[in-house]
Design a protein around this nucleic acid. Structure first.
Lengths: 107, 107
DNA sequence: CTTATCCATAACTCCACGGTTATGAATTAA
DNA sequence: TTAATTCATAACCGTGGAGTTATGGATAAG
């Protein structure tokens, strides 16, 4: 099994952290200060969440003077898509097999 | 925002639980006893994971005598697909807008 | 009827982690 | 140079939750 989905699921499981990632996807690049406003948590908390998101490859950071700009990296979501379609794929394949079996028994 | 992704992410964040769900997708319906074997954890732990998966709508249970059969319900993954494509969608739309802007400035 | 099997629940322990405040490094403004 | 701003890190706390063992209810087997 691949390790990528694990880190992604763990990272996106926290609502606050996922909300930060959503904001970056919707509104584009943001500084830490901008993200802290209306995040509901303190600035250090936001910094830690951004660190976790970066570790999972979900965001990139760009330093400019004393502020750090973060932006979403939605390509990192690909393993999530892969995993999901694999799961539904397995299920579908089994369903098809059952369907096939029933047809054989029917005739 | 919808609440569905939150429960799904939280439920699938645990590796043991996700492995159980994966087995159900790959191999189809299983009893608790069968799932406990090679799960690496005790039977009560497996039961609790199955309860969490059921709460998230990811599995169904079927009682037959003294054993309970569980099966995957992959349709429950749909909100996950929706969320993911929304995120990449937002990002893509912003990229398109930027592209558009650049074209205007270019001419 | 008695015993064994299957599963769920209860009660408990432990720790990963999300939150906080405090602080300092780096940069900008006065 | 001094003061203010921005962010990251350290240190700490509290809690949710994943694991365990113990137990009991329900069903099947002897």
């Amino acid at each position: 099994m691949s390790l990528a989905p694990d880190l992604l699921f763990r990272t996106l499981a926290d609502p606050t952290r996922r909300a930060i990632f959503e904001r970056l996807c919707r509104e584009g690049e943001q500084t830490v200060g901008a993200l802290t406003v209306r995040s509901g948590v303190s600035q250090p908390a936001v910094s830690k969440h951004l660190g976790a998101l970066k570790l999972a490859g979900l965001v990139r950071d760009r330093h400019e003077g004393r502020q750090t700009h973060y932006s979403a990296q939605p390509g990192a979501l690909d393993p999530l898509l892969d995993w999901t379609s694999q799961m539904t794929g397995f299920w579908q394949r089994r369903l098809d097999a059952l369907d096939d079996l029933l047809k054989r028994m029917d005739q």
